[in-house]
Design a protein around this nucleic acid. Structure first.
Lengths: 194, 194
DNA sequence: ACCTGAACACCGTTCAAGT
DNA sequence: ACCTGAACACCGTTCAAGT
């Protein structure tokens, strides 16, 4: 059977969700598509590019239109929407973190944050820094959270006693006097003043 | 020639610094020690344990005694000290992030942060959350920073135009009304009030 | 205590050739 | 445009056996 790029990405997400990122290999994916591994290189120059496409698709599937018009509420929506998107698939946070670290792909959340933060008129060139920092926070937190969630559901030796990772109320970020506050567990809130 | 555990860890750090984390393989390390790969399994049960020991040694070498007695200044020292330790070796941030994510090893910075934050008397059980969040911030930021630093020194296509990742003045964290402020580029500051 | 030899079950990637 | 066949240069890990 013949496939094209999108089929490969779809099957890759299935493999990711069923077996995890470590088992998302070119050979296994090829097997799942009933094709020789070398066939994948017709669609993607290398594995990194494949992973970038997979990460982009995971984010695309999780994307929701912004409902707020206020920039601060938009930042909240982007951050908690990103978290939701990452938690929707096994190892989603690890995948997207890896792709972002590698530099090609998964740039949508960053771009959206920069756009939303624009009207905040942060001092000097602080907007990209604030966007990256929020990204670090959400990625790091969700990676933590997903690791524990998956360790729990893997039916291991029972739930570990480590405190759950959450953004509790009263925890937040300050950028130039603007307070980006964490609200409910697992999401990032934001408010002005402080 | 016969080695023991510490020799292996020392050589592993040399390989890490010279060739990077991706090339720190059991086979290459064994070659560097003039030993068969299987010999390494006398010292470490698997590669993850080896990496945990390497991460711990990287952090141990970077450890500085705390000079401040004030808890808030201690937090600053721990965070910027951690950053310095990670930047001291190639792929240091990636190594330590991986080991922490995996869950065994590299727990010293977290423990130190929890200890330093103790006197802050944060509300309810917010101390571990604050510690983890600071860790996410420093690890994510330093990973970013080190990636760009190394991309630059790898003599690539010239420095990329992306804005440098830094914790500029005016950026910070708020935990229960206590403001953990970023100060000079690359380090995390902290002050009360807000 | 520390190591060898040999094997097992994998990887990502390239490339000429086929349809 | 999409794929095969075959190869290259690797991986982590196990385990009986040697000193």
């Amino acid at each position: 059977m013949r496939h094209h790029r999108d089929d490969v990405v779809r099957h890759a997400i299935d493999v990711l969700d069923a077996y995890g990122l470590a088992d998302l290999t070119m050979r296994r994916l090829a097997g799942e598509l009933d094709v020789r591994p070398s066939a994948l290189y017709h669609h993607f120059r290398d594995k990194q590019s494949l992973l970038a496409a997979v990460a982009d698709e995971v984010l695309r599937r999780g994307a929701r239109p912004l409902v707020s018009s206020a920039w601060d509420e938009q930042v909240v929506e982007i951050c908690s929407g990103l978290r939701d998107a990452l938690l929707a698939y096994r190892d989603g946070a690890e995948l997207v973190s890896t792709v972002i670290a590698f530099g090609l792909g998964a740039s949508r959340p960053y771009d959206d944050l920069v756009a939303a933060l624009g009207p905040a008129r942060l001092g000097s060139d602080l907007t990209p820094t604030a966007a990256r920092t929020l990204l670090h926070l959400v990625l790091g937190h969700t990676l933590d959270e997903q690791t524990h969630l998956q360790a729990g559901s893997a039916g291991a030796i029972g739930d570990d006693p480590r405190p759950r990772s959450d953004f509790a109320a009263g925890l937040g970020l300050v950028v130039d006097g603007i307070r980006l506050r964490a609200s409910v567990p697992g999401s990032v809130g934001l408010d002005q003043g402080a």
